[in-house]
Nucleic acid binder design. Structure first.
Length: 317
DNA sequence: CACTTGACCTGTCCGC
DNA sequence: TGCGGACAGGTCAAGT
């Protein structure tokens, strides 16, 4: 579920938390989640300082002063949650100097200050690590970054920063839809390469456009009043132009709202995103369309659960 | 080559 | 209540 807006929200969060911190220790429990050789981790990660956090498509890049980068894909259920050590350990009557208070402070307390306990924007995160924690990065100040991934589809790689553009995914991934160089005409010409596919499958294809997943495909198609199963060759130039704008609008709005939390997604501080309260079709089956009041339905297109307004988005194959 | 489907995983929900 | 199966949906490999 982390799509472009969710990964971008995490990037923004980590950018205010990690740069300058030095990696002290790394542990992991699931080899596929972080397959790098232990020797590389020791040589290029432990002791390295974070210099910058970047994003390309749905991939997060944590750059290090060792000239290596952590390349992270959250796939469906991945989370990157940063927690710092409690500033003032709870006082204990036990003999001093024996056991340090090792509890970590998630952002729950700050959230509860703002919203109250149990508020819908409160954290999904309990005590960390938990059973979904795959990799733990510990920094020299005692703070930690947890890579959690219930379904184990996500991964972390440590590779030389100069090699990042050469990995297979980076070589074939399409342009960033929110980049200022990404024009409506480029959008149209890239879509047209796949004229015999349905338009939803093409939006989801990362080699066509980067970063769009199921949520924003459905939302943008509703915005442009296009049925997701429509073959690209049957979509008018006018509609594609409308879709270009609708897609950028929903991505921008979602970044503003901290992304979409459907099930697992949380930002770098463990906080949910609120975009779905603004969504027009995604997870709104059975509810009225905001434009015409017709009941939103859920079907299957391109192998995915697909949400549409049957009146606004006429099927036209 | 263009395009579609299955595999990778675990947790949750639904029907019997 | 327990149990099997469908479902969630990003990406790559394998299929048509």
């Amino acid at each position: 579920m982390p799509e472009l807006p969710e990964v971008e929200t995490i990037r923004i969060g980590l950018s205010s938390l990690l740069p300058g911190k030095k990696v002290a220790k790394v542990t992991h429990d699931w080899p596929k989640s972080f397959p790098n050789a232990a020797a590389d981790v020791q040589q290029f990660l432990v002791g390295a300082k974070v210099t910058d956090i970047k994003r390309r498509a749905k991939v997060l890049l944590i750059e290090l002063d060792s000239k290596y980068s952590l390349v992270i894909h959250l796939k469906m259920t991945g989370q990157l949650v940063y927690v710092r050590k409690l500033k003032s350990p709870v006082t204990s009557r036990q003999s001093s100097g024996k056991t340090e208070d090792k509890r970590l402070e998630t952002s729950d307390s700050a959230l509860e200050e703002r919203f109250g306990a149990g508020h819908p924007t409160s954290s999904l995160i309990g005590k960390l690590p938990d059973k979904s924690t795959r990799v733990t990065f510990e920094f020299n100040d005692g703070s930690k970054l947890f890579f959690n991934d219930q379904r184990k589809f996500g991964w972390v790689r440590l590779i030389p920063t100069v090699e990042v553009p050469n990995i297979e995914f980076m070589k074939k991934v399409g342009p960033e839809p929110l980049s200022s160089e990404f024009t409506g005409s480029e959008f149209a010409s890239r879509l047209r390469r796949r004229k015999n596919s349905n338009i939803k499958a093409v939006l989801l294809d990362q080699t066509v456009i980067a970063g769009v997943g199921n949520i924003y495909a459905d939302e943008s198609l509703w915005g442009a009043k296009i049925h997701p199963a429509t073959l690209v060759r049957n979509v008018s130039a006018q509609k594609i132009s409308t879709l270009y704008t609708a897609l950028r609008d929903v991505l921008n709005l979602s970044i503003q709202k901290g992304g979409s939390t459907d099930r697992n997604y949380v930002d770098a501080k463990g906080k949910k995103g609120s975009y779905l309260t603004f969504a027009n079709v995604f997870r709104r089956e059975g509810k009225p369309c905001a434009r015409c009041g017709t009941t939103i339905i859920k079907t299957r297109v391109a192998g995915r659960g697909t949400h549409t307004c049957p009146k606004c988005q006429k099927e036209r194959l």
